[in-house]
């Protein structure tokens, strides 16, 4: 029966899940937009407090990782197992670098006394408190998605390695890839919202 597995049904299921993710982050972006319109000057000040370099580097890393996953799908369709494995490994490496960057970025902010409920934010303007509250919620939730995506891809890596994901049956890898691209998609919007507000 395994030869009759419903590959397109599995993919449809993944997309349905991705729709709920779009609405989840969409809701947070709406929250951001509403407070941006209310506290525009505070949000601009908050945005200037974030390191543009970290934002740009992490954007480039995620775009490259998405390319690697897309290349892995092309490779599995062509049955080039070695390329699949190295592309997934490259993507996992990119994810790890992203998280390390995030660690330094958050660590630096926390060292400056900017974290949820910190005295500095509570005593400062309301808008700035809102901005950094949303910054930690949205980038934190996104970071969690990076960790889940990496786990999903690592499992797919193992399945490709032992030959359970092949050119004929690769829905698992495809779904892990779709999830990873969604994480990239969300970052594409987080980046201008937080790092490019002027």
């Amino acid at each position: 029966m395994s030869s009759h597995a419903d590959e397109s049904g599995k993919k449809m299921g993944m997309w349905l899940f991705l729709y709920t993710e779009i609405i989840l982050f969409g809701g947070l972006f709406v929250l951001y937009a509403v407070y941006f319109s209310r506290y525009t000057s505070d949000f601009i000040e908050g945005g200037k407090g974030l390191s543009l370099i970290f934002g740009v580097v992490n954007t480039i890393i995620l775009l490259i990782s998405s390319f690697a996953v897309a290349a892995a799908i092309t490779a599995i369709q062509r049955g080039q197992k070695k390329i699949v494995l190295s592309a997934i490994a490259g993507c996992l490496g990119c994810g790890a670098i992203f998280l390390v960057n995030k660690y330094f970025e958050w660590g630096h902010k926390i060292a400056l006394g900017i974290y949820p409920n910190s005295d500095r934010l509570l005593d400062g303007p309301d808008g700035l408190n809102m901005f950094f509250g949303l910054y930690y919620i949205i980038t934190g939730l996104h970071g969690l998605h990076i960790v889940i995506g990496m786990t999903f891809l690592a499992v797919s890596f193992g399945f490709v390695l032992v030959g359970r994901v092949t050119a004929k049956r690769f829905a698992l890898l495809e779904n892990a890839g779709l999830y990873w691209h969604l994480v990239d998609l969300i970052w594409i919007f987080i980046f201008p919202l937080f790092y490019l507000v002027v």
Binding site: L52, V56, T59, I60, L63, I64, S66, F67, A70, A71, I73, T74, Q77, R78, F191, P192, L196
Partner: peptide, 24 residues
């Protein structure tokens, strides 16, 4: 077979990186 060539994917990556530098 609905397969994108590596070259196509790479060009898309390049466009994405160029758009990133434009938006910055």
């Amino acid at each position: 077979d609905h397969i994108f060539a590596y070259k196509t994917l790479f060009y898309v990556l390049l466009v994405l990186l160029i758009l990133t530098s434009i938006t910055v």
